[in-house]
Simulated assay, not measured.
Amino acid sequence: MRKFKAKTLLLAAAVGLLILHLFKDFSDSKTLQHNFDVREDQVQLRQPITKSSSYVYSWTRCQQNTSASNITGFSSLPGNIKDFLYYRHCRHFPMLLDVPEKCGGAEKSAEVFLLLVIKSSPVNYDRREVLRKTWAKERLHNGVWIRRIFISGTMDSGFEKERLNKLLEYEKSEYNDILQWDFSDTFYNLTLKQILFLEWMERNCPKARFLFNGDDDVFANTDNMVEYLQNLKDNNGNKHLFTGHLIHYVGPIRDPGSKYFIPVQVYESDSYPPYCGGGGFLLSGYTALVIYNMSQSITILPIDDVYMGMCMAKAGLGPVAHIAVRTAGLHLPSKTLDAYDPCYYRDILLVHRFLPIQIYQMWHRIHDPNLICTKQPADG
């Protein structure tokens, strides 16, 4: 009899817990339903819901533009170009990692003199770690603040995608310096990455004075960048500036074998507006917001640096060359010279294509108080 009563009590307790659990699920579903506006083409949050401090959820379902297949010659295009044409209208993707307080809030963002905006894929952990310890270190230099942010999409699928996303979540929790959206981090989506960042900037960091925008495999002398920007006449970020390795009088590459292949189905004109090489360039906060505003009415082109030039051209603005930005690398007068002699890099702003170990060594060598140089930077 006692055993029967004990079993009965255990069963009653289990049923009670189940009822409580079901009630909680029902209550949660009602809460979620209250927080969402449901429409035919998308689900939008009325109020932001956070799973944790690292993840911010929002959903937009972007439908494939099937009419793209009616474009003349579509069937002969490579798969990546077809995908681009199917989805080039998509500009809104779920944000997985956010750091809205990076600039101290929108109103205090004017305290950020130079915001380093670094394009980085999820797998490039070693590059990010080195940059945090060298030229992208957040610090006060010459009395002004340098802040850092990495911008990323997602890679792979299934468990591997989850693992890479978790890696970025760990980094973000430790360094508070990663923005991530749930789109495929590919070469043809670099323009999308730029647009999403500029949208974030308008919302969270609209008064930042200047920006450096570049890749995670460059050597950037950010001390020199600050000093160059501080010496500008009558421009504290509130006027147009866009400078780097100027490229003009060129047009789209029509060779399907090229990484930069752009067929007429994507871009009809045979010429590009002037632009600066995407390895790295400097721009004012004013110009960054102009580019974002212009981008709202300009169809996406997969070559991101060209697209920035297109946005400036529409606004009646243009880029200018800076001799100390070498996105094509340094060109030494002789092969017998050491290509990594720090004296060639002490006075430059940027050089493209450095391995993490080279970045680490060069940063410390140019800051060696015992370094003595008589050499000048090589002509580029």
Rank of each mutant, 00 (worst) to 15 (best):
K3W: 10
K7E: 14
T8H: 14
L11D: 09
I19W: 10
K24A: 13
H34R: 15
L45A: 12
P48S: 09
I49N: 01
I49F: 10
K51L: 15
S52P: 01
S53D: 14
Y55S: 10
V56W: 10
Y57I: 12
R61N: 12
R61L: 11
S67M: 06
S67K: 12
A68G: 01
G73T: 05
G73V: 06
F74S: 02
S75I: 02
I81L: 04
C90G: 06
C90F: 05
P94F: 09
M95E: 14
D98P: 01
P100C: 07
G104L: 03
E107Y: 08
K108A: 15
S109P: 03
L114S: 04
L114K: 04
L115R: 01
V117Q: 00
N124D: 14
D126V: 06
E138H: 05
H141F: 15
W145L: 15
I146T: 08
R148W: 06
I149L: 05
T154M: 09
M155W: 07
G158M: 02
F159I: 13
E160Q: 14
E169K: 09
K172P: 00
E174C: 10
N176Q: 13
I178P: 01
Q180M: 14
W181I: 00
S184P: 00
N189T: 06
L192E: 04
W200C: 01
W200E: 02
C205N: 03
R209Q: 13
L211N: 05
N213Y: 15
D215I: 02
F219K: 00
N221F: 03
V226C: 05
Y228A: 08
L229A: 03
Q230E: 11
K233W: 06
D234C: 04
G237Q: 06
N238A: 12
N238H: 14
K239T: 08
H240N: 08
H240R: 09
L241C: 07
T243C: 11
G244A: 05
H245N: 11
I247P: 00
I247G: 00
H248Y: 13
H248R: 15
I253E: 15
P256C: 08
G257N: 15
P263V: 02
V266Q: 03
Y275E: 03
C276F: 01
G277I: 04
L282R: 05
V290R: 02
T299W: 09
L301A: 00
M310H: 04
C311S: 06
C311F: 04
G316Q: 09
R326K: 15
K335R: 13
T336Y: 08
A339F: 14
Y340S: 11
Y344P: 00
R346Y: 07
D347Y: 08
V351W: 01
P356S: 06
I357W: 10
Q358Y: 05
I359W: 01
Y360S: 15
Q361M: 09
Q361C: 05
M362G: 03
M362P: 06
R365N: 12
R365M: 13
H367M: 02
D368K: 01
I372T: 10
Q376S: 14
P377T: 06
A378W: 06
D379W: 07
